[in-house]
Nucleic acid binder design. Sequence first.
DNA 1: TATTGTTATACTCTATAACTATA
DNA 2: TATAGTTATAGAGTATAACAATA
Lengths: 146, 146
Amino acid sequence: MGRPHQPPIGLAVARVARTLTRAFEDALAAAGGSQSAWLVLLQLKINPGATQRELADALELREATMTHHLSGMERDGLITRRRDPNNRRVHQIELTDAGEQAFHRLRKAAGEFDERLRTGIAPERLAELGDTLALLAANVQHGANH
Amino acid sequence: MGRPHQPPIGLAVARVARTLTRAFEDALAAAGGSQSAWLVLLQLKINPGATQRELADALELREATMTHHLSGMERDGLITRRRDPNNRRVHQIELTDAGEQAFHRLRKAAGEFDERLRTGIAPERLAELGDTLALLAANVQHGANH
DNA sequence: TATTGTTATACTCTATAACTATA
DNA sequence: TATAGTTATAGAGTATAACAATA
């Protein structure tokens, strides 16, 4: 004890992340959306045929949590769900026109947000940030209590 | 459009932060606490005479939210609240013995967590991470919608 | 009137457990 | 039995609005 210590790095990451997340949520709300809707829509674009379980895994959520979000988005008219005729346990998820429009609006808002975020920071520095964050994540996952 | 774009930096920060936050919450839970309790206890140690408003500001929360957390901690026997005789609107918050013990347990857990996080990452790199995160936070705060 | 804090209420995100339908 | 998803329920965290007490 008594060693001189740098300030907790986890605290710094968490604090900045909170600031960023809130601002991002505001930006998406201004575009008529939310972070959860944006992440789900993006994931559906990346992996159009995904099952709900796959979506949940991609977003690191439980299936029940995914159901919750998708039900909300269905209620809001962004997506439709219908049974896969080949395997009726599976739901096929599709974007409605409103969902497509929302996706484009949110993509624009997310892009502008990121643009704002990067302002005045050298690209190499941002690249190194990404690498360092990956190292932190790896350190956490190694030591994880299973 | 069509410009080659680096992956969204906000997404990367948010994703890693979520991983970190969850692991940190687990670590604190294993020490019999929670992140909110830890942050409040730490803040009380840093600024012992703080009013609830000051605590709320320091943690970027609303007063009502602070009341909520403090009531929980009082219920759990970590703190006591009593009126300041000089200004009876203000509550003086003090750690109980159990609160002191919790603080030390959580400080230890938090320290070990941070140790794990830093493993294998050069100190200069971590320092630069902190700086870059500060730049990101500044960029967000400038552009904030007031 | 302004300040400090509480209460009542509600919303979002997340989770677990028990369930249905399907394979 | 195993898989895909839903429903019911709950808890944590946060917020706003209305309020009480105090200055």
